[in-house]
Simulated scan of single mutants.
Amino acid sequence: MTDFHGTSREAVATLRQRVRGVTGTPAELVEAGQQLFSVVRLLDAQPVLRRALTDSTRTPDDRAALAGNLLGARIGAQALDLVTAAVRLSWPRTRQLIDALEEVGALVLVRASEEEGRLDDLEDALFRFARLLEREEGLQLALTDPRIPAENRATLVRELLAGKAPEGAVPLVEQAVVAPRGRSLTEALDAYAKLAAGWRERLVATVRTATPLSAADQDRLAGALRRQYGHDVHLNILVDPGVLGGLRVELGAEVIDGTIASRLDDARRRLAG
């Protein structure tokens, strides 16, 4: 997601706290998240409107009233409350408001999965779908082809994920498909997955292994990483036949390579040196 700075970072922190207070059933939260994404798409397409909603010469109350008049009949009370809270804040650049609303919409969908007790499933669904797209070029082309109507691409997402992911995951993937906002589809999905992990203040590690890890092995690895980094760590496990024994763990910019292939490469370098 966007890396906010200064005033905008403080504004986003305020909105995140407001999201933590949002209540409702998972279905209600999914609806609110979808509505916030619809506002993001509207503001992306309407530069005059987004300038009006971030105009520092207007009072915060004026901006909130404008948002209420324009959107009150289009979105529900939960989504509208978050939009009006956002436009009351100060945004040095108009597009920061849209970026913030996208993040808020995504976090409301994260909250929906949290209420379902399926936040781990949400992170896994986003990660796995992104990796599927990397393998299946035809599917990625179908979901990113601008000649195919956006609703048709969204329908394909719903069909692919039906019964396989938490409620909150589907609109996140739909948003990445129909409005990636300058990112590749996999970049957008990975950004949402990291946002979900950050909601619980934990890190995300991609683990490559030649064979599946047992639940006990995953728990031991997560515990070791937690002790090393001082945060809970969510593991995304990739079974990769190209890994010759051991594990390769990627956590942010850091790589912990304990594979046989890596050790052989080290040995060759020492012999050559």
Rank of each mutant, 00 (worst) to 15 (best):
7 T>P: 03
8 S>D: 05
10 E>T: 04
16 R>G: 05
20 R>E: 10
24 G>H: 12
26 P>G: 10
28 E>Q: 06
31 E>K: 02
35 Q>R: 13
36 L>Q: 00
37 F>E: 02
38 S>R: 06
39 V>P: 01
43 L>P: 03
48 V>W: 00
48 V>H: 14
48 V>M: 11
48 V>N: 04
52 A>H: 00
52 A>V: 07
57 T>R: 15
58 R>P: 08
59 T>M: 04
62 D>E: 08
73 A>K: 01
78 Q>A: 09
80 L>M: 03
81 D>Y: 14
86 A>Q: 06
89 L>P: 10
89 L>F: 10
91 W>S: 05
92 P>Q: 04
96 Q>Y: 13
100 A>W: 07
101 L>W: 04
103 E>C: 06
107 L>V: 10
109 L>A: 10
112 A>D: 03
117 G>V: 12
118 R>W: 00
121 D>T: 05
122 L>M: 02
122 L>K: 01
124 D>A: 11
129 F>L: 11
130 A>P: 01
132 L>E: 09
134 E>P: 08
137 E>N: 15
138 G>K: 15
138 G>P: 05
145 D>Y: 02
145 D>F: 09
147 R>P: 00
148 I>K: 05
149 P>T: 00
151 E>V: 07
154 A>W: 02
165 A>K: 03
165 A>Y: 03
166 P>W: 02
168 G>S: 11
169 A>P: 07
170 V>Q: 06
172 L>W: 07
172 L>M: 14
173 V>A: 13
175 Q>I: 09
177 V>F: 13
181 R>V: 13
184 S>W: 00
185 L>N: 11
186 T>P: 01
186 T>R: 05
189 L>W: 13
190 D>E: 15
190 D>H: 04
190 D>V: 13
190 D>Y: 14
192 Y>W: 06
194 K>C: 01
196 A>E: 14
198 G>H: 11
199 W>I: 00
202 R>A: 02
215 A>Y: 08
218 Q>A: 13
222 A>F: 15
225 L>A: 15
226 R>F: 10
226 R>N: 08
226 R>P: 02
227 R>H: 05
233 V>K: 02
234 H>T: 13
244 L>E: 12
245 G>T: 07
245 G>P: 01
248 R>P: 00
249 V>N: 04
252 G>R: 01
253 A>K: 07
256 I>Q: 06
258 G>M: 09
260 I>L: 15
263 R>E: 12
263 R>C: 03
267 A>E: 15
267 A>D: 15
267 A>S: 06
267 A>K: 04
268 R>D: 09
269 R>P: 14
270 R>V: 11
270 R>I: 13
271 L>Y: 11
